[in-house]
Amino acid sequence: MVSGQFISIEGGEGAGKSTQIRLLAEWLESRGIETVTTREPGGTPGAEAIRELLMSGSADRWNSRAEALLFAAARADHVDKLIKPALVAGKWVLCDRFVDSSRAYQSGGSGLADADIMALHAIGSEGLLPDMTLVLELPLAEASARAAARDGAATDRFGARNATFHENVAAAFRGYAQQDNNRFRIIDAAGDVETVHMHIVQAVGALLS
């Protein structure tokens, strides 16, 4: 039997994370692997309530320190009530964003210390990290166009931030992947949906061996 595995899918706005998580779950299920798909912030009732606080309102509703604390609180509930129980039960957990998004957005994008983000994660979620993190990488112009087509005028607080912020986020993800090539895999998300899916399948296949 394959033991439970935890995979996070990361990337900027419009990279196609939700679509690729759905396709990966279908691929795993077709091989008899029970999967749980979830997202951050969110995944549990408490974390979804915090998500509403984080994602709605004006860009300056929360400063970066408050955002980091709220994300950490949502993640603590998510890990305790959904992610860890699923892994203990031998299921594979596929998460649309995890702690690396907090690192990229609140540290890389907003200037907090990465060590402080990870300290909050150690307290709230006991330092849990995915077995594999897939970073969907897409040129900023294409990502912005995809996000605009998807969201129209309904952009959330993070999607509405300027190009410099999103460039810093993308650079942060790339930096984390370069620092830890055991956990991270960079996936070129510029191709068609099926091609990107096949790249992901090739990466995830390492966890099946």
Rank of each mutant, 00 (worst) to 15 (best):
I123W: 01
I123E: 03
I123Q: 01
G124W: 09
G124P: 04
G127P: 00
G127W: 00
G127H: 02
G127R: 05
L128D: 00
L128T: 03
L128F: 01
L128I: 12
L129F: 03
L129G: 00
L129H: 04
P130I: 05
P130L: 11
D131F: 09
M132K: 08
T133P: 03
T133K: 09
L134V: 08
L134M: 07
V135D: 01
L136S: 01
L136T: 00
L136V: 01
E137K: 11
L138Q: 10
L138V: 15
L138P: 07
P139G: 15
P139M: 15
L140A: 08
L140E: 07
L140N: 06
L140H: 08
A141W: 01
E142C: 05
E142R: 12
A143Q: 05
S144F: 07
A145P: 06
R146V: 13
A148R: 15
A149N: 04
A149W: 00
A149S: 05
R150L: 07
D151K: 15
D151G: 07
G152A: 09
G152D: 06
A153P: 03
A153E: 09
A153M: 05
A154V: 14
T155Y: 03
T155C: 07
T155V: 14
T155L: 14
D156T: 11
D156F: 04
R157M: 00
F158C: 00
G159L: 13
G159I: 08
A160E: 02
A163C: 06
A163N: 09
T164H: 04
T164A: 10
T164Q: 10
H166Q: 11
H166D: 09
H166T: 06
H166I: 08
E167I: 02
E167K: 07
N168A: 14
N168K: 14
N168Y: 02
A170S: 14
A170D: 10
A171P: 02
A171Y: 01
A171V: 05
A172G: 04
A172V: 04
A172Q: 13
F173P: 06
F173D: 10
F173G: 11
F173E: 12
R174A: 11
R174F: 01
R174N: 11
G175H: 12
G175K: 12
G175S: 13
